[in-house]
């Protein structure tokens, strides 16, 4: 036994244990978050896949994906429980004389599919992102390439930061007040586009600025020293190299746009609409029509109709399709961006 412990002796066991425990708690917090997220994801995916996939070829439930919602009628017929969509039920009653007064339980939206919602969401997102990218990238170009730090620019940046914190429902109210009422566009694609575009604007600006800043100063200096004007420099020596970054980061904005319900509730979304968006008589009508949208449809089917085995299919199916769409976009964005970050070090 040594009277003096060596100076490099390991610390006491107890202290090490305590440290290990604290770190383990932090670690547990991390994995608790992942577990919660994973749990939600898995629940929707597993239960939803029962609606979207099927055992026989083509393995995907095309009716669900590519037809419009209908009411589901459930009734007893000749000792068997039958489930039929609207049209089928009507045809059935005409065919079967005894069925005219059959008592059926009806569940709205629980049969058919969600094709109009998918189409509406895609249209909404495409338009909103086009607008947001055009304004957002231009704005970022100004902030990163032209602007010099001054009181005004600080004010603009403050506005962008604050815009990012405005609740989505407030954007909804604003869009309703300005586009739907003041401009008289009614509930329409156009109103939805602008509302959503303004909402993601801060995301797009921030992402674009980051991408522009990542382009090395040397390229700008080289172009300017060769006699390029400011705009030529931006067009030929900055934007082309920033564009991949701008796009990948902005895709995350797409996920956000697609995922929001509150802003489109009063500006663009219809609970139900029989026609598909492109079935319009005049081209302008296209812009001024309301559409069905996946997130709003989820809201409707999860809050306005009862929960039971018949409605669960459409609820989980819609949530599945929507979550998968958004998740794919988000995952693509995150992966692309991480790859880009590691590659773009010149």
């Amino acid at each position: 036994m040594n009277a003096h412990p060596t100076p490099f002796a390991p610390r006491s066991r107890q202290r090490r244990l305590r440290e290990g425990l604290v770190i383990a708690i932090f670690r547990a917090a991390t994995y608790a978050v992942l577990l919660a997220g994973g749990g939600v994801f898995a629940d929707i995916l597993i239960k939803g896949s029962r609606t979207v996939f099927q055992a026989e070829a083509p393995f995907i439930n095309t009716t669900f994906l590519f037809s419009a919602p209908e009411s589901l009628h459930v009734f007893e017929w000749e000792g068997r429980r039958r489930e039929m969509g609207d049209r089928e039920f009507r045809a059935f009653r005409e065919r079967e004389p005894g069925a005219a007064d059959v008592r059926a339980e009806s569940f709205v939206y629980s049969a058919g599919g969600i094709w109009p919602c998918i189409a509406g969401t895609l249209l909404l997102v495409a338009g909103a992102m086009t607008l947001a990218l055009a304004v957002g990238v231009s704005s970022a170009v100004y902030l990163s390439e032209y602007a010099r730090d001054g009181r005004f620019i600080r004010f603009v940046r403050l506005a962008i930061l604050n815009l990012a914190g405005v609740p989505s429902i407030v954007f909804g109210l604003f869009g309703f007040g300005m586009f739907v009422i003041f401009f008289g566009w009614n509930v329409s694609l156009l109103a939805g586009w602008f509302t959503l575009a303004f909402m993601v604007l801060p995301v797009v600006i921030t992402a674009s600025e980051e991408a522009l800043k990542a382009v090395p100063q040397g390229l700008r200096a080289a172009a300017l020293a060769l006699g390029a004007t400011r705009w030529q420099t931006i067009r030929t020596a900055v934007l082309p190299y920033a564009l991949p970054g701008i796009l990948t980061s902005s895709i995350l904005g797409i996920a956000r746009v697609a995922g929001e319900t509150a802003p489109i509730m009063f500006t663009a979304a219809y609970v139900v609409r029989d026609r598909l968006p492109w079935e319009v008589e005049r081209a302008v009508d296209f812009l001024f029509q309301g559409v069905m949208a996946l997130p709003y449809h989820i809201y409707v089917v999860s809050s306005k109709i009862p929960q039971n085995e018949y409605t669960e299919r459409v609820q989980y199916g819609t949530a599945f399709v929507f979550l998968l769409l958004v998740a794919l976009v988000a995952a693509a964005s995150i992966l692309l961006r991480n790859r880009l970050r590691s590659r773009l070090r010149w």
Binding site: P216, G218, L219, A221, A222, A223, L224, A225, L226, G227, A228, Q232, T236, A237, Y241, W346
Partner: peptide, 30 residues
């Protein structure tokens, strides 16, 4: 016009991430 007339080479080489040809042709294309 001044910068066309007075060229500059920088401390850190800064070729554009383009082809060699396009790098040289850049100034003329401008």
């Amino acid at each position: 016009e001044l910068r066309k007339h007075v060229g500059m080479v920088f401390q850190k080489s800064n070729p554009f991430p383009k082809s060699i040809y396009e790098n040289i042709a850049y100034g003329l294309r401008l």
